[in-house]
Design a protein around this nucleic acid. Structure first.
Lengths: 361, 361
DNA sequence: CACACGGATTTGATCGATCAAAATTGTGAG
DNA sequence: CTCACAATTTTGATCGATCAAATCCGTGTG
């Protein structure tokens, strides 16, 4: 009554182990008649090859690893859920499993790679953020381990840099650019940017989009005045908004939903009614406007416009590239030059929302 | 230059494979002198036993599985991050790895169990929610697979029921009871409950705590009037709050932060200033009060009081029980009757917050 | 009719560990 | 000095698959 194995099935069917193995791994080598007979028996017995035995022989585990970063803020970290889910789903349907691990630092992450490669024989890794001059990608590359990154490579100065490893990222600049355009279309002209300190490449990228769109619209002269840096918290957003409002901004594009949330609150409170009904600093229709970034559930709940990252698509692509790298090496002769883009910048989408009245009708 | 194996190390050291294996798995059998010599060699060579080979022989993978539920709401789903992180960390330090998988339904989840057990040889599973008359726990139990649940077992009528599998849960009733007590201490007497429809056992449990505390305080006569059911969304919370306010509630305990968020908005908007500065339905100090549930990041950001679940502790305990079950079976003679509680109800904590002014000073 | 040939199938070795049992060594009693 | 017995170490088999090479088989050919 125990689990069927290649050997047990083989003796039942009066064929050799190898024939069954071939039916599964190289069907063309088996005569159609036997193939079908074996396939039927496999289905009937519910036979499933043992991954451990297979791994021992082939040195492939069909297992991908990913570090779970220490929970951040949670408002913005909420998109991790979606990413992780899509990643797991995509890996699963590509025949891979996903193993999680934790690490306190990037150095420890590297030590974990080493251990997981040796012990569990993971086939590849997914990195969920890139840092300037990333030691982890260097290490993985040197070791010849397959991996794919959600995040562009940055040089030590925080500038985008070429690299030949696979990565997927979302074009943050395009997102903020879109936000500015939306606000311009609404008639706003004094559009501020509320972002992080300049040490963050991701933050700088988002700031860049705002600058680009403002310059293109002929408001380049406001780039200094209307650019404010703040701590990435709700309180930071409120404080920054107070500054921007005092400089005459009627709308603002934020680097995160946390900041945008703070901005909304500030506008509502400091000039009661300003946000919804006009008055105080307000745009042409009498309303001040805020756009966040990441389109977190909070934004949706509060009716905050925000830039939505296509994280599901990013996750699927990460898996696509990584599995192509892993599976494709054998079939490299056939599929040379085809395959998915190894480096891909996805365009985000600006979700325009009408602020919720926050009261039942 | 390739990875050291038991055999390669053995020949270098001029001892047998088995001796090295014993140093790792049964050190007491090895003479101290050799043991140290071997240990030094292991460290020097950076030897790590292959999990695949070990699994093939021992039939244990040191791998635990968990289904990633389709992302829910996201406001409340945010605590999954924390749970998952703590789970991974605890599993890791117990020497286990965590494998994720997806399933569309509970039936598919069972099919995945079957496949993962056969193929990957997972040692156990973690279930992250329990449903009334749960088919999954029945299946796992029948199959003799180790598992632990975050969530109490409920019978088909949604009532708590005894079961002999390990589980950990948070005492929701105690949470809402604590919320009520906090509001009573603030001087409120007309405290409403804004919860989910009665089909949800978890929701009913939370409602129960409110009822208990209200009755104990002598407000049992209000249990019908001040109990409102709503859809678990921000809009639902706003609508329910309108009803509760019209019935004279000055404070409300909610089943979730989504509802509480809706409640806050409703209070702010429908009676401008009510929430912060008194007026309209308000408590003794002139303020209406809302308490949410789950202490999501949004609650923290907005200064919403909420009931915090000790999810990290729950995760650690789930792993503790599960690994004890798995590791302990061998040592059952020694540790009989000891070990962690197989069933544990954790007390949540009410986090009292002062609503943020939402404006910078 | 023997023989080469390619497709289909089988055999034996192997991946790297642990288990079970056997062999070796050391120790104290008689 | 020998023998029983425990402590320590080694040997051979095994887990369940795949690889590489060998064998088998039916055909077409000279």
């Amino acid at each position: 009554m125990s689990r069927p194995t290649l050997a047990s099935l083989a003796s039942e069917l009066a064929v050799s182990r190898q024939t069954i193995s071939n039916v599964l791994n190289a069907p063309h080598r088996v005569k159609p008649a036997t193939r079908e007979r074996v396939q039927a028996a496999i289905a009937a017995a519910g036979y499933r090859p043992s991954a451990a035995a297979r791994q021992l022989r082939t040195q492939r585990s069909m297992n991908l690893g990913m570090r779970l970063l220490p929970a951040t803020d949670g408002i913005n970290g909420a998109i991790l859920d979606r990413f992780l889910h899509a990643l797991t789903e995509a890996a699963q349907s590509a025949g891979y499993r996903l193993t999680l691990f934790c690490a306190e630092s990037d150095e420890e992450e590297i030590r974990q790679y080493e251990q997981l490669l040796d012990v569990a024989g993971l086939d590849g890794f997914i990195l969920t953020s890139s840092t300037p001059d990333d030691a982890r990608t260097r290490w993985l590359h040197a070791r010849g381990t397959a991996f794919a990154v959600f995040g562009r490579p940055w040089d030590s100065a925080g500038q985008p840099v070429a690299a030949d490893h696979p990565w997927v990222d979302v074009d943050g600049a395009a997102g903020t650019e879109g936000s500015v355009k939306m606000l311009l279309a609404q008639g706003h002209t004094r559009i501020g940017f509320l972002g992080w300190h300049t040490g963050s490449p991701v933050g700088n990228d988002r700031r860049l989009g705002w600058k680009r769109a403002m310059s293109a619209a002929g408001y380049g002269q406001d780039l200094v005045t209307l650019n404010v840096e703040a701590e990435d918290t709700v309180a930071g957003g409120a404080a920054g908004t107070a500054v921007l409002a005092s400089r005459g901004a009627t709308a603002m594009v934020c680097s995160s939903d946390s900041l945008a949330l703070g901005a909304m609150g500030q506008l509502r409170e400091s000039r009661p009614g300003a946000f919804l009904r006009g008055g105080g600093p307000a745009g042409p229709d009498g309303q001040a406007a805020v756009v966040g970034f990441d389109d977190t559930p909070v934004a949706a709940a509060l009716g905050l416009s925000s830039v939505a990252q296509p994280v599901e698509e990013a996750a699927r692509h990460v898996i696509r590239v990584l599995t192509h790298e892993l599976d494709g090496s054998g079939a490299s002769l056939l599929s040379r030059g085809e395959g998915p883009e190894r480096q891909l910048l996805l365009a985000p989408r600006v979700v325009e929302r009408i602020p919720l009245p926050l009261a039942a009708p």
